[in-house]
């Protein structure tokens, strides 16, 4: 039994301590917004926030998440950064197949939470761990800038 905090709620899960958080979310908690792409921290599809930092949930044992705050894509629309990112994603038509986009949004919102004026270099660095086979990088970069602008516009 491990107690973790997911999207603000404490939950006790029965998965063995070495079970990656990805599978706890998907299989035990039925939260399928976080995706599997490689299981080896190489694609970013499974990105969630751990205390606000982007982490690959496929390679994070649930024991290591005990006592920390996990945030997933399912909760992003209620955070100011998350909703700004989602709005820009929508405005710039970012997704294609959609599969990688949970992870992209988690990485992008973690970047913008810390850096409201990211340069191309900052964006590339923050996003290089998230593969998009549909090739939406061009639009992701534009949407991150758009979200940054919209947030600074709001003050």
């Amino acid at each position: 039994m491990t107690t973790i905090t997911v999207n603000g709620k404490a939950v006790t899960v029965t998965a063995t301590p070495d079970t990656p958080v990805l599978w706890v979310l998907r299989d035990e908690l039925g939260m399928t917004g976080t995706k599997f792409g490689c299981g080896m921290a190489l694609c970013g599809a499974c990105t969630v926030h751990l205390n606000g930092e982007p982490v690959r949930s496929c390679s994070l044992p649930v024991s290591a998440a005990a006592g920390h705050k996990i945030t997933t894509i399912e909760a992003m629309s209620v955070t100011p950064v998350g909703s700004a990112v989602q709005a820009s994603w929508l405005a710039l038509d970012v997704p294609q197949c959609g599969y990688c986009q949970s992870g992209q949004i988690m990485s992008a919102s973690a970047l913008l939470a810390k850096n409201r004026t990211p340069s191309d270099g900052d964006i590339d660095q923050a996003m290089a761990g998230n593969i998009c086979r549909c090739g939406t990088y061009n639009q992701i970069r534009a949407a991150i800038k758009d979200a940054a602008a919209s947030m600074s516009g709001r003050g």
Partner: peptide
């Protein structure tokens, strides 16, 4: 025209076979 299918992909509501 903006894509009508995007909203579900931005909120983790897409429904793929593994889901």
């Amino acid at each position: 025209l903006r894509r009508v299918e995007d909203a579900r992909f931005l909120t983790g509501q897409g429904r793929y076979v593994a889901d």
